[in-house]
Computed example of a mutant assay.
Amino acid sequence: MNKKKIYSAWFLVPTLVIFTGLFILPMVTSLFFSLTVWDLKNFTFVGLENFKMFFSEGSLNIGIRNTLLYAVIGCSLKVTAGFLIAVFLTSNIRTKNILRSVIFFPNLVSTIAVGITFKALMHPTKGLINSALGAVGLRGADWLGNARTALFSVLSVEAWKGVGVATVIFIAGMQAIDKTYYEAASIDGADGWQKLKNITLPLCRPAMNSVILLAFIGGMRSFDLIWSMTGGGPGFATDVLASVIYKQYAEGFYGLSTAGNVIMFILIAFIAFPLQKFLMKGEVD
């Protein structure tokens, strides 16, 4: 019996080696170098000074606030829009298959390409959006150049690009619901809203939980769309943790940027795991 257990355990070795090499060792190494000032050749141990600087400098810790704001609002937009669109696309409409392809299409386009395209569309004087608003007598805004609107402008593009995945997950969840629930509700005289509230929403909780977790974690890690649209500007208005970390690496502050990576990892883990546990409690078996 013991020989069988040992034989079976050997099958875990390749996985453990890969997991250790690609996750455990980089994590431990990052934690160590976050406590140092280092370049590509030498390092000096400085303890928690990098973390103190990260939290004391306004230009650095603003990334934490923007990251949380970006993740929460982006997640909310994707969940809400994805659910409503999925309800529409699972109804009895003839063109639903075509519309599903259209909704998912933005997710197939490169994020950098989307960012560059919308940066041009949102140009204050030459952009198509302001030109269209001007044609109907409305005054356009400096969408990406105004510190008050820049982050929300990027968030709108983030929601537009990411809602396709959320919609597909919701559609899969809705199609898995047994139709007899709706038939029984119809016999009892339930209308569309009552069916949505008492059947679709509760039985779609697993799909909704997946969308929330994916959208939230994706928002916490977001970088490429923000960088291609604003570069973190104007000023630090759209800087998130990932863009702050990138800027510090580019400037040669490797220890400080590594500390930022550690902060991002801890922040995501600290929020994502309790959030997952909380969401799973409400699932309907």
Score class of each variant (00 low, 15 high):
residue 2 N to K: 15
residue 3 K to H: 15
residue 4 K to Q: 15
residue 8 S to A: 15
residue 8 S to H: 14
residue 8 S to D: 14
residue 8 S to N: 15
residue 12 L to S: 14
residue 12 L to D: 11
residue 16 L to Q: 12
residue 18 I to N: 03
residue 20 T to Y: 05
residue 21 G to H: 11
residue 22 L to C: 15
residue 24 I to P: 04
residue 26 P to I: 09
residue 29 T to I: 14
residue 30 S to Q: 08
residue 34 S to D: 01
residue 36 T to G: 00
residue 38 W to M: 07
residue 44 T to E: 15
residue 45 F to C: 10
residue 45 F to K: 12
residue 48 L to R: 03
residue 50 N to P: 01
residue 54 F to A: 12
residue 55 F to A: 11
residue 55 F to E: 04
residue 56 S to V: 03
residue 57 E to R: 13
residue 57 E to M: 03
residue 59 S to N: 13
residue 65 R to E: 12
residue 68 L to V: 13
residue 68 L to R: 11
residue 70 Y to G: 11
residue 78 K to C: 13
residue 81 A to C: 15
residue 81 A to N: 12
residue 86 A to Q: 06
residue 87 V to C: 15
residue 89 L to N: 09
residue 91 S to C: 09
residue 92 N to Q: 06
residue 94 R to W: 11
residue 95 T to R: 12
residue 102 V to K: 00
residue 102 V to A: 06
residue 103 I to T: 13
residue 104 F to E: 07
residue 123 H to G: 04
residue 126 K to R: 13
residue 128 L to I: 08
residue 135 A to N: 11
residue 135 A to L: 08
residue 137 G to H: 06
residue 145 G to M: 04
residue 148 R to Y: 04
residue 148 R to C: 02
residue 150 A to T: 10
residue 151 L to R: 10
residue 153 S to H: 01
residue 153 S to C: 00
residue 156 S to C: 02
residue 160 W to S: 08
residue 160 W to N: 00
residue 163 V to Q: 03
residue 165 V to Q: 14
residue 167 T to P: 02
residue 173 G to S: 09
residue 175 Q to G: 04
residue 176 A to C: 03
residue 177 I to T: 08
residue 177 I to D: 04
residue 182 Y to I: 09
residue 183 E to G: 02
residue 186 S to W: 05
residue 189 G to T: 02
residue 190 A to T: 04
residue 192 G to H: 10
residue 193 W to T: 14
residue 196 L to N: 13
residue 197 K to T: 11
residue 197 K to F: 02
residue 200 T to C: 00
residue 200 T to Q: 08
residue 201 L to W: 10
residue 205 R to A: 11
residue 209 N to V: 07
residue 209 N to W: 04
residue 212 I to P: 05
residue 212 I to R: 03
residue 213 L to Q: 01
residue 215 A to G: 07
residue 224 D to H: 09
residue 227 W to P: 00
residue 227 W to I: 12
residue 230 T to G: 03
residue 232 G to F: 05
residue 236 F to I: 06
residue 238 T to P: 07
residue 241 L to E: 07
residue 243 S to W: 00
residue 245 I to L: 07
residue 249 Y to P: 01
residue 253 F to M: 01
residue 258 T to R: 01
residue 262 V to G: 06
residue 263 I to H: 00
residue 270 F to E: 00
residue 273 F to Q: 06
residue 276 Q to S: 12
residue 278 F to W: 05
residue 279 L to F: 08
residue 283 E to K: 04
residue 284 V to K: 13
